[in-house]
Structure formats: C-alpha cells, structure tokens
Design a protein around this nucleic acid. Structure first.
Lengths: 225, 225
DNA sequence: AAGGTTTCTTAACATAGAATTAATCTAAAC
DNA sequence: GTTTAGATTAATTCTATGTTAAGAAACCTT
C-alpha cells in the first residue's frame, strides 16, 4: 500500500497514534483529524485514497461527515471505513446507505484492518471506471475510446474530457464558466474561444446535433435517436 | 519429489543433517547453509525449487534473507518455508508479507513437512501463475519468456514487467502515472522519458503496433491479429 | 577483483499533433 | 438593423512523446 494517502479521524489520540504508526510503516502518507470539521477540511485538500472515520466524533456525526465527503468529486472513489465501538450497532445499517465502504468494530485489529483495506483497494482498482452510454454514442473511460455507430475512435484529451463532462449529465446545460472550472481548473485563464473550438471538433466528429448551444449560457449534450 | 533441488538453512547442524538425510532419500539434490550470507549465495547460484529457512540465523535475519531471495528472478517462484522455534510467533505475521509460502514450527515433524512441501509444489505446478496470451504474442511469467510467432525470447526485466502490465488488460489505457506506480513504485522518481524508452524497445522487438499511444494519457496494448 | 556485457536511466534534441489564439464571419435576440 | 455571442478558419504556440546516444549501474564470467 505504498504511496497512498490515508486520513485517520478519531477523537482518541491513542487510536490515531496507533493507526498512524502502523500505516506510516507501510509507507503511506498519513493525515489525521480529531473532529469532523477538521476531517472534512483535510480530506477536501488532500483527497486521500483511504479514510478511517470514527462514528462518534465530538462535533459532527461521523456519518454526516461521510455524506459530506462523498459530495466532493475527488473523494467519490476514496475508500471510507467506519470505526465504531462495539455497542453502536446502527452504524452497520446506516453506514452503507451513507456511502461508506465498510465498517470495523473496535477494538481494531491491525492485521484485519490492513488486510481489509488492501482487499478493497485492489477490488476498486480492478473496477472499470466511468462508462457512459447514450442512444447513439458511448464512452469507454478505461480505453479512452468513443464509439458511434459501431465505429470506435480515440480523440484528443481535451475533447474527450469535454465530451465526458457533457455526457455525464445529458440535457443538463453546462455554463461556460462551469466547463472551464471542471476541465481547465479554476486558476487557469484560457481564451474566450477555446471552448468553442473544442465543441466544434466534437461536432465535426460526431455530428452537429450531439451538442446543443444554449446561447448566453453554455452547452448541453443531447441524446437524439 | 524426485529431482528437485532443496536448500536447507539452519545454524544447528543436527537439524540440517536430519532434514538433509530425509530429502536425499527422496532423491532430491540437497544443499545446505548455516547462515544467511551463505544461503543467499547458494540460492542465487543453484536456484533451488524449495528453500527451508530458519528464522533465527547467526548473521542475517531469516526474513531479510527471504526478502533478498525474492528479488532474484530465478527464485521468484521457489517455495520458501520458514522454520521457527515455538516462541517466535512474530514470524507468522511478518512471514507472508516478506514472501514466504508457509512456515513450520519446530520441532519439525518430517512427515508433516514432506507432505506440506509436496502439496505446495503440486499447487504451484497446477497454477502456472501469470500466463498471458493474446492472438499473436504470449507471456510465460514463470519462465520469464515472451513468444511471438513461435519464437521465444527473454527480454529485460523492466520491459517484461511493462509488457505484462499492459497485456494483463488488453485495450485498457494505462496512464503514465499508473505505470510508474505499478512498476517503479510511488516513491521512486524516475525521469520523464524512461517509460517511453522501454515502450520503444518493446515496439522494436514485437512490432510498432502492439502498443498504442494515447496522447496525454498513456499507453495500451492492442491485440491486432 | 577485473573485464566485458547487458540493462536502466537520463539528457538532448526532433517532431507530430494538440491546444490556444486571433481574426473574421454568421446568426439569434433584442 | 444593430448588437453580441458564438462559429469558423487558419496560424501560432505548446506539449507530449519519439528518438538517439551516452553514462551509470547491475550482472556475469573468468
């Protein structure tokens, strides 16, 4: 588990220390928080691959924290594990609903925990990521291909990202602002016509009608059969 | 278990003798070492199929020896069994991390040991681990060979690993990041052009078309008949 | 240990193709 | 009909990768 980032959230310093020590030894980058607020803050900044989250926290409930974390794009695929004391059985039921991947009952056994994380991480990596399909065009994120009418093609990165974004929510109008933010990042300043050019390329390749202009606002993907 | 090479490593001559006698009777080629250094030396030269390794050695720790041995490509598939005195429970935990196949608590019972080895060897042979085949190229991970059009060749380690990675999921685009992580490990900082050079070597050897570049993303193996 | 060989990595440069911009044109909205 | 956002095109700049050669490191052989 070398190189992964892990965030440990618990209000008991002993537990945090123990776990931190263990995972540092495995060459993971360890972050820790003692409460929910802090946890959210760190997670959003570092987007760790693994998050261990105590259910009982002084400020926010662990499950609420979890819910909050899952809203962040960069944490969608993180592994979130609940830690709960023996009595708090409810976590089991609620846990999955809220989006945790698993839960561990304290006292934590390091070996078990480590193994669990390893297994889940492996499984995660194997899972095919992002595969979007509409009536007449489909994207395969693993292979970075776009298929239309059976013809598969590889398109440049920016075009691919743009198409993926629009197709991820068909019919939703993405404001130009929003597109810039998602694909170019917030800080980047890129000319006014840049998006247009990429849109044009996509239309050229997959037909004028797949992307509709909403003047003054932005663009949307249209699934026209 | 006829014809196999076995290396016995222990600092107690009695034990070595006993085991040696036993395995010679089974027509195995027996080698022995009294310390870690010697063990490594012999193992690298003889690459025995089976290695019995005492955890407590006068010089190097048995587990370190094991780790060292596993680095040798000819010993990757050897059967390594730890021998440990009853008290030394830690070997159990650390053992499999380090790459041992099993461990035996002393006093060794010959019949049990022999049976264990037999079973493990059989299982090993049954699962020719890592054997990837595509239409016109195939990898034999056990023997570290690559065959194309009937011609079998041995290629350098890094190239082999890279090819294996890409071929393990044909058509899947491996991001450069991902490749680095898998083959070089996250901690390693390796130059930007290193991957390219290895890719180039592979294309040189097996044809330009086997690996396709996905610009801005990474590479993928293509099975083109 | 010395010498030769192979493998790995790096640096430097070349190049193709991608991203961006600028300039100009078009059409929708008022 | 004027205005303005967007479309179009081509030129320009950038960037990722390809390529080569050379040095370092690992590996073998004697």
């Amino acid at each position: 588990m070398i190189g992964q980032k892990i965030l440990i959230v618990d209000d008991e310093p002993d537990i945090v220390d123990l776990l931190a020590y263990n995972f540092k030894k495995q060459e993971m980058a360890v972050f820790s928080a003692n409460n929910g607020k802090e946890a959210i803050e760190i997670a959003k900044k570092q987007h760790p691959e693994v998050i261990l989250l105590d259910v009982m926290l002084p400020d926010i409930d662990g499950m609420e924290v979890c819910e909050e974390l899952r809203k962040d794009r960069n944490l969608k695929n993180s592994l979130i594990l609940f830690l709960s004391a023996r009595g708090e059985d409810y976590s089991q039921i609620a846990g999955y609903k809220v989006g945790a991947d698993d839960y561990i009952v304290k006292p934590v056994k390091l070996k078990v925990l480590t193994e669990k994380i390893r297994t889940l991480l492996e499984r995660r990596n194997e899972e095919p990521l992002g595969n979007i399909t509409s009536t007449n065009i489909s994207i395969d994120a693993n292979r970075y291909t776009v298929s239309k009418d059976g013809a598969e093609s590889i398109i440049p990165k920016k075009e691919f990202e743009l198409l993926t974004l629009l197709m991820s929510k068909p019919e939703k109008v993405y404001r130009r602002e929003e597109i810039l933010e998602q694909i170019w990042g917030v800080k980047t300043f890129v000319g006014d016509r840049t998006i247009d050019v990429h849109i044009r390329k996509l239309r050229e390749k997959f037909g004028q009608t797949i992307i509709k202009t909403v003047k003054g606002i932005g663009y949307k993907f249209e699934d026209n059969p």
